[in-house]
Design a protein around this nucleic acid. Structure first.
Ligand SMILES: [Zn+2]
Ligand SMILES: [Zn+2]
Ligand SMILES: [Zn+2]
Ligand SMILES: [Zn+2]
Lengths: 135, 135
DNA sequence: CTTGACCCTATAGTTGCTAGAGGGTGCATA
DNA sequence: TATGCACCCTCTAGCAACTATAGGGTCAAG
């Protein structure tokens, strides 16, 4: 399998595959006589794993860790759970931060009466000190 | 006001202020004899504006635009509203994406019985084809 | 006159790709 | 055989928005 086929099979760009190789997520595959990368089904599985993990928002570091953990099939899976749970906590924190942004932004936008810039509540929220501490 | 004071007054790192200058968000201020940047209250206001906008998640491009719009105090504020509303939509899209990640990840984590890695539902979710299309 | 806090520039690193330059390979076809 | 084309190769630079380092200069206090 050439890199383009692997790319199509996993919905990944060719450059991204080469990038994963450089980043140590995919081992350098054997090459053909013409120096083309040659992949088998193992690499297809591994890249699918990576892509699914990325879709769930795991960082490349976390993916690397999950891949390593996944190889010791007889180990307890507590470490896997730890990575996933800590990532879930990160996502929840991000959502909370964004929700706060959204609420404040919606409030500010809602208070705009579409008049002049000088009277716009959006602008006034951003520069609450104009005319105040001016020396 | 030296850059360090401005940094403390706006809860910004010194390097970030210099970065904003390079990025065209802050004009290059006058310098002292010793080549130190020297700021006044205008720059304090402007940097406060930038920081507040960044806290609301606006990109630097959007901040630049908002700053420009804010200077024409007599113009109608429709353009301001447009920037803010489109940014709000972006945030809401981000939240929706993250919420989907969170739900799926929580589901997957919830189905783990803390056994061996080979039986872990988290791992199995990521590599659903092991043993299937092999050979 | 030296210490120390602060300032300066310029450059590289971060994350996860993406895009381009400038070339080589391999197969079909005229 | 020559040409075209799709595909592949490496290397480098670019994106956002900083952050961090190296290697210096400035200034007030002791
Ligand atoms: Zn994570
Ligand atoms: Zn308005
Ligand atoms: Zn935005
Ligand atoms: Zn498990």
């Amino acid at each position: 399998m050439k890199i383009g086929e692997l790319a199509r099979a996993t919905d990944t760009k060719v450059e991204t595959i080469r990038y994963y190789e450089g980043a140590g997520l995919l081992a350098p595959p054997p090459r053909t006589g013409g120096n083309y990368r040659s992949y088998g089904s193992d690499e297809l599985s591994r890249l699918s794993f990576i892509r699914r993990a990325r879709d769930l928002g795991f960082s490349l570091d976390e993916v690397r860790e999950l891949l390593t953990l996944a190889d010791d099939r007889d180990q307890p899976c507590g470490a896997v759970d730890a990575v996933a749970s800590s990532h879930l906590a990160t996502i929840e924190r991000k959502i909370a931060d964004l929700a706060q942004m959204r609420d404040e932004l919606a409030r500010v936008i809602g208070s705009c009466r579409l008049g002049k810039v000088g009277d716009c509540k959006i602008i006034q929220t951003l520069e609450p000190m104009r005319g105040a501490a001016r020396g």
